[in-house]
C-alpha cells in the first residue's frame, strides 16, 4: 500500500502533551465516573467493610489463640488491601467498555495516547484506592482497632494499599487489553482473590500448617500484608517494611510492562 495525504504544514495547535497533565485528566475522568454511577463503585466499598465485620467477629477466637488479641488489628489492613484491589476489577470493566464503544481508539490515536490508556488508569486506580482505605480504617478504629505504630503505621498501610491497587490494575489492564471481553474482569477478580488468600490473610505464618504454608511463604502478598499490618501490630520497623516495598516494586514493574505490552498488541 502506498498513501500520501496532505503536506506537512506548521498549521494546527497540537503539541506533545505533558504526561502528568494527561494522567491527571484520566484520574479526573475516573472520579467523574464514580460520581455519576456510584452503584458500580459501591460493591468495592461495601464488600471490604462487610468482610471486616464478618471476619473480625467470626475469627476473633482463632486469632486470639494465635496471640492476636484484637482481630480488627489483623483484618483492617487486609480489608483495605482488598478494597484497593477491587478497584482493579472496576478498571478492567471500564477498559473493556471503552474498547467496546471505540472510546479507547480515540485515546490511542492522540499524541498523549500511551499516558491516557495505561498510566492514567493506573494512577486512577491508586486514587480510587484511597476511598476504601479511609472508610475501612474508620470503621476499624470505631470498632476498636489500635495503631501502636502511629502515623508511620498509617503510612505503611497507605503504601501497601496503593501498591496493591497499582499492581492489581496493571494486571487487570493487561488482561483486559489482551482478552478484550468482560471475562477479563472476572479473571482479575479470581487472581486477586487467590493472591490475597493464599498468604497470611487469615493467620500468622507460624500458625499455618500444611499446603498453604509454603505458598504463603513465597507469595509476595505475605510481604505486602506485613507492611500493611506492622503499624497495627506494633512499632513500624525497617525489618517489616523493606520486604513489602520490594515486592510492590517488583510486581509493579512486571504488571506495568504487562499492561504496556498489552497496549502494543493492538498495533500488531
Amino acid at each position: 500500500m502506498t498513501a500520501a495525504l496532505g503536506e506537512d504544514r506548521t498549521y494546527g495547535v497540537a503539541s506533545d502533551p505533558r504526561t502528568a497533565t494527561v494522567i491527571a485528566f484520566m484520574v479526573k475522568r475516573s472520579l467523574i465516573r464514580i460520581r455519576r454511577i456510584p452503584a458500580a463503585f459501591l460493591p468495592s466499598l461495601a464488600m471490604p467493610v462487610f468482610q471486616l465485620i464478618a471476619f473480625g467477629g467470626a475469627f476473633a477466637g482463632a486469632l486470639a489463640y494465635a496471640k492476636i488479641n484484637q482481630a480488627l488489628d489483623w483484618y483492617v489492613p487486609l480489608s483495605c488491601l482488598q478494597g484497593a484491589a477491587f478497584g482493579a476489577m472496576g478498571l478492567a470493566f471500564a477498559t473493556v467498555n471503552d474498547l467496546r464503544t471505540g472510546f479507547f481508539d480515540r485515546l490511542r490515536m492522540a499524541p498523549g495516547g500511551r499516558a491516557a490508556t495505561v498510566y492514567g488508569p493506573l494512577a486512577a486506580s491508586m486514587v480510587r484506592a484511597i476511598i476504601p482505605l479511609v472508610i475501612v480504617s474508620a470503621v476499624g478504629f470505631i470498632g476498636g482497632a489500635a495503631l501502636p505504630g502511629g502515623v508511620l503505621g498509617l503510612l505503611t498501610l497507605t503504601a501497601a494499599a496503593l501498591g496493591v491497587a497499582f499492581c492489581a490494575s496493571g494486571f487487570g489492564l493487561g488482561l483486559a487489553l489482551r482478552m478484550r471481553t468482560l471475562a477479563a474482569a472476572t479473571l482479575t477478580q479470581f487472581a486477586i482473590f487467590f493472591a490475597l488468600f493464599l498468604s497470611t490473610a487469615q493467620m500468622p505464618l507460624d500458625f499455618i500448617q500444611g499446603w498453604v504454608k509454603p505458598i504463603a511463604r513465597l507469595n509476595p502478598m505475605t510481604n505486602v500484608l506485613r507492611l500493611a499490618r506492622e503499624g497495627f501490630l506494633g512499632e513500624v520497623t525497617w525489618q517489616d517494611t523493606w520486604g513489602g516495598l520490594l515486592a510492590i516494586a517488583i510486581l509493579g514493574t512486571l504488571t506495568t510492562v504487562y499492561a504496556v505490552r498489552g497496549l502494543r498488541s493492538f498495533d500488531k
Binding site: 477466637g61 482463632a62 489463640y65 494465635a66 487469615q202 500458625f207 500448617q209 500444611g210 504454608k213
Partner: peptide
Amino acid sequence: AALSASSYSRVKNAPG
C-alpha cells in the same frame, strides 16, 4: 475448606 484446614489447623487445639 482446604484453605481454612491449612490456615486454622492449629486452632482446633484452642480451648473451647
